[in-house]
Design a protein around this nucleic acid. Structure first.
Lengths: 257, 257
DNA sequence: CGGTTATTTGACTACGATCAAAAATAGTGG
DNA sequence: CCACTATTTTTGATCGTAGTCAAATAACCG
């Protein structure tokens, strides 16, 4: 550490994992020792360009990672090259905790645009999980939540029509972004292309375009640049059959943005 | 325990969780103490009728559970009543470890026909996870594997056509059933209706029927009663784009049944 | 400003859905 | 064990959501 760095700064840079901590503490208060153990994890901040591959299917990663800034998604690819986006990840999400226990990554993780990712060595995660049960539980919880979100996505793609699916996805993203303070009065930045959305929804980009055009026409969504606005939350949530139970939000969850 | 029960019998009935233990030990050897801790969990065996609901969406279960015998599935239901089966579970699977950390169940768990389910109180699972890190890791691993299987299901439903999806599902079930000794020379019992399959595949039962009829005609699958045979594993796996990486099998995995 | 990427529109196609009903199978009770 | 009932499977005909192919327009970026 360079001489002359003030304690305040030092404090700030060594707590990259605080967004994850905040997420934990919504449901489970941690003791000071437990918090200290999380913060003591060796961690490395990586700033990425847009469309950077953090983890690639088939790889054997050595680090777990958290999203600090930006939007990230997991995806898998079918034999003919068609991509399915499994889930999106917002700041505070431990986007790769899976490879801590799996030797080989079963999916790819990429950033949508430039992002900040915190890397923690697998060995350190495992050691801390062994030594601090509350953190083991926190890691476990985060991956269970991922699984729940994936189940809802499967219901969405398997059993809802394109309009409903699309509305549902926007509702989910809005709620999750709001939780981390990235929604202002019903608006949020969403740097996804229509092809990204299509790949998450299991439809073609052409069809996605038509669905979105209709939404705009009907005042269900408004776009300007990379920013999306939901003018009428209740209408969109109703159309998307959006029930946030699967997000296992605890504490006061004011849904209407 | 009734007087006169011989030690051998006593031994047998108190180890309902051994199928889970076997699953763990394929990848992670446990010490005798760790095994003892798992076996020491308070456990209750429940025998169910066909189509019994073990956990219902919205409920607050008090016990975790493992499949000991039979076939079990998770499902969610869309607003119009259409059901999506998320995943199937075979003996040795900890089918409900989710509600240990989630207060409210986000999906329903049902048996296909009569089954044997082992129940373990949430509190005991949590306590053991805290005290025995190797078991915490084993529980975590099992839910991570669930998540991986769900990701593949999402790719399947979102990005593969009905024939490919169907072939893939049969391949997965064959591999998972084989792991627990329920496949004999390419044949296994599969008491699912075509409606069940359709709900897992995100298609209608009518279409499932047509796909299966074609498979039979082409010699890709053979049915007799509730038993299915895969006469040509390589052909079915190729059609289903089946790559078992996502099952994170370790040790010798002889795929061709 | 020029090249690339993303969005939009149009025409046509097809996979799988829907509606309807018959045939087969499995369960159930007498 | 057989008749009766319910469920499941099968078949046929028609429909529609979303896919495909193609190309123009618009937005973005260096």
């Amino acid at each position: 550490m360079a001489k002359g760095v003030v304690p305040h700064m030092l404090h700030a840079v060594s707590h990259y994992l605080d967004p994850f901590l905040d997420k934990i503490e919504v449901r489970d208060k941690l003791t000071d020792d437990e918090k200290a153990a999380l913060r003591a994890l060796p961690q490395k901040l990586v700033r990425t360009a847009a469309r950077s591959r953090i983890v690639e299917e088939g790889e054997r990663p050595t680090h777990a990672c958290m999203v600090l800034e930006g939007l990230v998604y997991r995806s898998k690819v079918a034999a003919d090259g068609r991509r399915q986006i499994i889930s999106f990840h917002v700041p505070g999400d431990m986007v790769d905790l899976h490879t801590v226990l799996f030797k080989v990554a079963d999916h790819t993780i990429e950033t949508v645009r430039n992002a900040a990712i915190v890397l923690v060595p697998h060995a350190a995660v495992l050691k801390t999980a062994e030594e601090v049960p509350a953190l083991a539980r926190a890691f476990w919880y985060d991956t269970l939540l991922d699984a729940s979100i994936q189940r809802e996505a499967l219901l969405n793609v398997g059993r809802r029509d394109a309009r409903t699916r699309t509305a549902h996805l926007f509702c989910e993203l809005a709620v999750r972004l709001k939780r981390v303070g990235l929604v202002n009065g019903g608006s949020f930045e969403l740097p996804l292309t229509q092809t990204d959305l299509a790949d998450a929804l299991g439809v073609t980009p052409i069809h996605t375009n038509r669905v979105l055009a209709k939404f705009r026409e009907q005042g269900l969504l408004t776009f300007s640049g990379r920013s999306v606005t939901i003018p009428d939350w209740k209408a969109l949530a109703a159309l998307g059959e959006f029930d946030p139970t699967y997000l296992h939000l605890e504490g006061p969850s004011d849904l209407h943005l």
